[in-house]
Design a protein around this nucleic acid. Structure first.
Length: 598
RNA sequence: GCGGGUGUAGCUCAGUUGGCUAGAGCGCCGGCCUGUCACGUCGGAGGUCGCGGGUUCAAGUCCCGUCACUCGCGCCA
């Protein structure tokens, strides 16, 4: 199957090439048959070039169809001034075709891949099913390039700083904590299973014990959990770990890496994004107090304000009883929200109710001095209104929205409402990537349902030295050397300094209610390793897919993955998960239990 | 497991209070067209209105159920 190999790429021909005889290979992007004239836009990964076929010379010209694969040879000619196409880089020239061959034909396409205006609304399952066609679109190919460049820059940056890239197993051990595991049956001993890693967490700590000191991996992770727009059953993390470091060392490396990678990609691809600056730092406590969440969007203000003390004795029963029950009352400002209709305010209330709020009280600011408001204003004395308006930093025509409940409910509802207001008021600038650090997470959270302390990240997170004394007396107050990178309101990276001393590990396990037997059963392998000289160490794991989403501006993770899975983890292209042969069931020693309702 | 949205030609969509022999643009097939570049133009083929049931003289439209996709909640150490 010989064919004429290209001498040039489609996208590179310019005036300088005029007069040269060149060969091109590519796909028929568009065909324009004018009767006496016949044009084809030939596309390869670098761009398109217009081919001009002399109709007298070729008999079978009109058999050409979309996405046929061609090799063509011809002479590069300058176009007349009036025929120049300024929209494409090759628009000043065209190829006067002398010979061509059809290397492959193409069936009628399932979607119009050469028409971006229509592809914006093309059904996603169809695109995923025919991903090999979807990826032919220049916009999709560009996402692959951006991803490849980001990963290349990460490797380069870390190699330059002495990090060693190590691969860890995909077949690993099931751990009952965290997300549901994907399991792989083990043929030699039926009833035993491998699990796919949710992250290489334990391996990377063992590499520290092994003396690797600086490790990284572009690691595939697997979690069998319900999907979201930004979650896939398999996704990719930059997994990193360092020995003989304090928290500050890890912050420095990962912030430097992030800024270098983002700013290099932004520049190289001329993305419509502002350069990434240094990361502001917030403590967990501060972040929750100011924004109601540990993943604040710092592109806009609208900080939450607290009126708990002001309303403790007020006439409004809803607020007063919430405070009496040990709850809090906080609010968020909707700038210019006085224009909202009763129905629109009702929609905001329904929105916060999705997140557990019982209601949403509102105060419409008419004037600030003297204080005049509508809504729940009648329950407040003049002085109380003044304090509330001051706390909210409100202006006339603002709408103040309040939730009264337990602190966790108030924060969650208002944080989400704040983001919604940010969207409505166009305060979330798509040209900004605002990364920040959230530091000093609590070591453990109280799980009310199971009446126990749960680790906020995992059981190996190091408590802050100055809080160690509280470990047994007031575990909820203990802060950890635990940090997240947040970008534009989404969690991007999470990491911690790990416990390397068995005595501290034992105390933490005991807070978590893990007795000796449970510790051995679940973590015996890593606890054994830590008895053989574990260095102080810590690390972090940023999400690669999300990084690419930030850079491309995509809100769906599937857009930045070459071959993604649909909602239920289904891949329509490979048609998998698939059934297996009876012999495979037999070989693995497995049987399927009949459905219960049969 | 739960809630919202969507489902009509290969693709994007329209389809009124139930009156339909279900339309348009793109694509596809055929004709015409010597400077197009989203070419233009004339004609043609193409439909289980997601699927099942019900109400009705009559259902794309109303009701019930169900499936697929999607967004969100729960979940995601």
């Amino acid at each position: 199957m010989a064919f004429k190999k290209r001498t040039h790429d489609c996208g590179e021909l310019r005036l300088a090439n005029v007069g040269e005889t060149v060969a091109l290979n590519g796909w028929c992007h568009r065909i324009r048959d004018l009767g006496g004239l016949f044009f084809v836009d030939l596309r390869d990964r670098t761009g398109v070039c217009q081919l001009n076929f002399e109709i007298e010379r070729f008999e079978d010209l009109r058999d050409l169809r979309h996405e046929f694969v061609l090799c063509v040879t011809g002479e590069v000619v300058k176009r007349a001034e009036k025929d120049v196409n300024r929209k494409v880089p090759t628009g000043e020239v065209e190829l006067d075709v002398k010979e061509f061959d059809v290397l492959s034909t193409c069936d009628v396409l399932p979607f119009p891949l050469s028409d971006e205006s229509q592809m914006k609304t093309a059904p996603e399952d169809l695109r995923v099913k025919h991903r090999y066609l979807d990826l032919r679109r220049p916009v999709m190919y560009r996402k692959l390039l951006i991803r490849a460049e980001a990963v290349r820059l990460i490797r380069e940056y870390l190699h330059e700083r002495g990090f060693v890239e190590v691969e860890t197993p995909i077949f690993t051990r099931s751990t009952p904590e965290g997300a549901r595991d994907y399991l792989v049956p083990y043929r030699l001993k039926p009833g035993r299973f491998y699990a796919l890693p949710q992250s290489p967490q334990q391996y990377k700590q063992l590499l520290m014990v092994a003396g690797v000191e600086r490790y990284f991996q572009i690691a595939r992770c697997f979690r069998d959990e319900a999907q979201r727009a930004d979650r896939q059953p398999e996704f990719t993390q930059l997994d990193m770990e360092m020995s003989f470091v304090y928290q500050e060392d890890i912050l420095a490396v990962s912030e430097g890496l992030t800024r270098h990678v983002c700013n290099s990609v932004i520049e190289k691809f001329d993305l419509d994004l502002e350069p990434v600056g240094s990361f502001p730092r917030l403590t967990y406590e501060e972040s929750v107090r100011r924004f109601g969440t540990d993943k604040p969007d710092l592109r806009f203000d609208l900080e939450l304000f607290d009126v708990t003390e002001t309303v403790r004795t007020c006439e409004f029963g809803v607020f007063r009883s919430a405070v009496e029950a040990g709850g809090i009352v906080r609010g968020v400002k909707y700038p210019g929200g006085a224009d909202l209709s009763r129905k629109q305010v009702g929609e905001l209330e329904n929105f916060v109710k999705e997140f557990g709020a019982k209601g949403l009280a509102h105060l419409t600011v008419v004037s600030t001095d003297p204080p005049e408001c509508k809504g729940i204003a009648k329950f407040f004395k003049r002085e109380e209104l003044t304090v509330i308006i001051g706390a909210a930093d409100a202006q006339p025509n603002d709408l103040l929205l309040f939730v009264a409940d337990k602190e966790a409910v108030v924060c969650d509802a208002l944080a989400r409402l704040r983001n919604l207001i940010g969207d409505r008021c166009n305060l979330r600038d798509p040209r900004k990537l605002l990364f920040c650090w959230v530091l000093d997470f609590p070591l453990v959270f109280w799980d009310e349902e199971n009446k126990r302390w749960d680790p906020s990240h995992h059981p190996f997170v190091m408590p802050k030295t100055e809080d160690l004394s509280l470990l047994e007396t007031d575990p909820g107050k203990v802060r950890a050397d635990c940090y997240d990178i947040v970008c534009n309101g989404s969690e991007w990276a999470s990491g911690s300094i790990r416990i390397h001393r068995p005595d501290i590990q034992a105390r933490v396990f005991s807070v978590l209610g893990l007795d000796e037997e449970a510790q051995r059963r679940r973590f015996g392998h890593i606890l054994d390793a830590f008895r053989y000289g574990a260095p102080p160490h810590g690390g972090i794991a940023p999400g690669i897919d999300r990084l690419i989403m930030y850079l491309t501006g995509d809100e769906n993770i599937r857009e930045v993955i070459a071959f993604p899975k649909l909602g239920g983890g289904y891949d329509p292209m490979m048609d998998t998960p698939s059934e297996i042969e009876p012999e495979q069931w037999e070989e693995l020693g497995l049987t399927l239990r009949p459905a219960e309702d049969d």
